[in-house]
């Protein structure tokens, strides 16, 4: 068919950077304007860390032997992982309602690639999660962990990688959900066990075989291990860590890439779900 309408001035294509950048900026601005989210995402792991770390500290052993580190120190990387996980997941919940009766409707009918939408949401939420985790990281001296430039740089890099992985996980979970209630159910059934059975709060070595097996296949186990390696980068051997650095890095990298690719695949395939 011949296009008779004067559309020459409308041939603009937004590309990847512009839409992606605007989605990231929007994510950060709206987060900072919702103080309850800031307090909730930072406060919950902090309280959890102090209560569990302080309360269970006396009964803590690493597989029956004295490790030389106390429980608050042991659970510090786990609390960082929890902040990354919860902040990312909460950022993604908005997708569910947003797509049916909010901002996302307008994004989906714009000439924006689905790749830009996924990257915009994932990078935006990762920035928020890593930002909050960085604030928590400054509490490391209270867990008798020494702050240093190399430790901060290594931990920041690890947190960015883990942030991308868990945010992309949250993205596709939210994308396939019809209601926020369903998302909460998944959080309780899948995401909480992923965190608890990751070696974040107790070493799996002394656990039942099934727990050890779940911990072994759980990608968060390797993410928490990567954080331990990063935090003790200048004191190798000081961490309680049964997984090698290369293994932890490679598995977390695969986790991030596969979650990201799956999110892009779903978003590209299912535009029809946008308003259903």
């Amino acid at each position: 068919m011949t296009d008779s309408t004067n559309l020459s001035d409308q041939e603009k294509r937004p590309g990847l950077i512009g839409p992606c950048g605007t989605l990231i900026r929007r994510e950060i601005v709206r987060f900072l304007r919702q103080r309850s989210r800031v307090i909730g995402a930072l406060g919950t792991p902090l309280i959890f860390w102090l209560m569990v770390g302080g309360g269970l500290g006396r009964s803590f052993t690493t597989g029956g032997e004295s490790s030389g580190i106390d429980y608050l120190e042991y659970t510090f990387p786990g609390a960082l992982a929890a902040i990354l996980l919860f902040t990312s997941i909460f950022s993604m919940i908005s997708i569910i309602d947003d797509r049916r009766e909010g901002f996302m409707q307008g994004v989906l009918v714009a000439p924006v690639s689905r790749l830009a939408i996924v990257l915009g949401k994932v990078i935006g939420a990762t920035v928020l999660a890593v930002g909050q985790a960085c604030i928590f990281l400054l509490l490391a001296p209270f867990a008798t962990i020494t702050l240093s430039v190399s430790m901060l740089a290594a931990t920041l890099a690890a947190m960015v990688l883990i942030g991308i992985a868990v945010t992309a996980l949250g993205f596709w979970l939210a994308w396939i959900m019809d209601s926020t209630q369903g998302f909460h159910a998944v959080m309780n059934m899948v995401l909480m066990p992923m965190l608890i059975l990751s070696g974040a709060f107790f070493p799996p070595s002394g656990s039942a075989a099934i727990v050890r097996w779940i911990t072994f296949v759980n990608p968060m186990t390797y993410a928490v291990s990567l954080l331990r390696h990063a935090i003790y980068v200048s004191q190798p051997g000081a961490a309680v860590n049964s997984i090698g650095f290369v293994t932890a890095l490679l598995v977390t990298l695969c986790f991030a890439v596969s979650m990201l690719l799956f999110s892009i695949f779903l978003a590209s395939r299912e535009s029809a779900r946008a308003l259903n």
């Binding site: 605007t22 989605l23 929007r26 009766e101 901002f103 996302m104 409707q105 994004v107 714009a110």
Partner: peptide, 29 residues
């Protein structure tokens, strides 16, 4: 080539009018 007005506004209520418009415009290049 289309503009779409949805039944429930596709605006971000936590952003200002101008911020919403700027975000909207960037999505169209």
């Amino acid at each position: 080539r289309i503009g779409v007005v949805f039944q429930s506004p596709s605006l971000d209520i936590h952003l200002t009018v101008r911020e919403n418009l700027v975000h909207g415009g960037r999505l169209y290049g």
